[in-house]
């Protein structure tokens, strides 16, 4: 059994989890760029902007790793039946959702 077969699952899961992280602000830590300080959890801005992006990436990586690890429990014969196109279609769909979320910037 090759661990590599979980890589496409990781990629698809990463995109979906990242979208959830942005939408619900699931950041395990916050960076206060102006103060150059880190804080635990999603904190409100103190002085200048609060940056959650690093936290979103961390949550997405951990979440996608967990999903990919779980996918290894699925027998390879069954996994082969899943359409491989999901690996690019899901991230593409997530990008479309981001364009929709950010539409306010482009429609003013």
């Amino acid at each position: 059994m090759s661990i590599a077969r979980a890589f496409p699952v990781f990629s698809a899961a990463f995109a979906v989890i990242y979208l959830a992280c942005v939408q619900y602000n699931l950041a395990p830590f916050t960076y206060h760029a102006e103060l150059m300080q880190w804080g635990l959890g999603a904190q409100p801005p103190r002085q200048g902007p609060a940056m959650y992006w690093y936290g979103w990436l961390t949550t997405s990586t951990l979440g996608a790793t967990a999903v990919a690890a779980l996918s290894l429990a699925v027998p390879a014969s069954l996994a082969k039946r899943v359409w491989p196109g999901f690996v690019w279609l899901i991230p593409l769909g997530v990008i479309a959702v981001f364009v929709y979320i950010l539409r306010g910037y482009f429609l003013r």
């Binding site: 496409p8 990463f14 990242y18 992006w53 990436l57 991230p91 997530v94």
Partner: peptide, 11 residues
């Protein structure tokens, strides 16, 4: 999209 591409690299 940069984050999504980063996640795509394993695939």
């Amino acid at each position: 999209v940069a984050s999504i591409a980063l996640g795509l690299l394993p695939a």
